[in-house]
Design a protein around this nucleic acid. Structure first.
Lengths: 134, 134
DNA sequence: CAGGATCCCGATAGATACTG
DNA sequence: CAGTATCTATCGGGATCCTG
């Protein structure tokens, strides 16, 4: 049951393995809103409507979906306060908080290298144009 | 032109800003195959067909798309060797290699916490089932 | 306020077949 | 070998409307 197939070619890493857990992560990180929500929740509990404002423009449906999946994965807790008007707080679990560091590193990479990426894009696109013009 | 709008609510982080560069990154990382390809290229240059084998099952079309976008972003170089049969090598640039560390951290997180995530999912799903059964 | 229910659409992955 | 071309199927995301 627990046997995990290793590649037979002697290649490194399990990234190659479709069963590799890292794929699960990249799915979550890759989610358009999930990683943003996690980072917004870094400071502490936030209620639904505030979350909506903080995460640029996301529709309630999509935000709900995102939060549900995060909750299902044990990264976020959902707390309903029995009061009128209703109030629902979302907060990171310990598991969710453990993701903050890797995420922060990624953000740091982003902020320091995005200019280079954008420059590369321009250069690439220019080269393409030139090629077309002959 | 360079003015970047800050949130007026005194909230932290630029994640909230749609113009925030981190979004560019999460797009790239979130790409189903891009981050996998980058990690596979960590060891050194790899040719197209080998890449196909290494990155589980990806169609040539999609792999090409992925490589093009990585090339455009300056993370990967494409080298065509004029010979028969054709040989094309893909290799990380310095920029691409600089992404390896953040990626590795994410993978480490994945591999250590995925069991917890899967357990959380089971628990969540069970709770859902129970709720339905009354 | 915090969402659930629907309908819809554009982007994209994948399968298949073909080419320099 | 290293792709390109085409078609199709799927799906996340958004818009809109409604409710406990």
């Amino acid at each position: 049951m627990d046997t995990i197939e290793r590649d037979t070619s002697g290649l490194p890493a399990d990234v190659l393995n479709p069963n590799c857990p890292s794929r699960v992560i990249f799915q979550r990180i890759g989610d358009k809103w999930a990683s943003l929500v996690v980072q917004v929740l870094a400071e502490g509990p936030v209620r639904f409507s505030d979350l909506r404002k903080m995460v640029s423009v996301v529709t309630p449906k999509v935000l709900t979906q995102t939060l549900r999946s995060l909750e299902r994965d044990g990264l976020v807790t959902r707390t309903v306060h029995a009061q009128v008007p209703p109030r629902v707080d979302y907060e990171l679990t310990a598991l969710g908080r453990s993701l903050l560091d890797p995420l922060a590193l990624l953000r740091a990479w982003a902020e320091s290298h995005v200019p280079a990426i954008l420059a590369a894009r321009d250069a690439y696109d220019d080269a393409q144009d030139e090629a077309l013009l002959g």
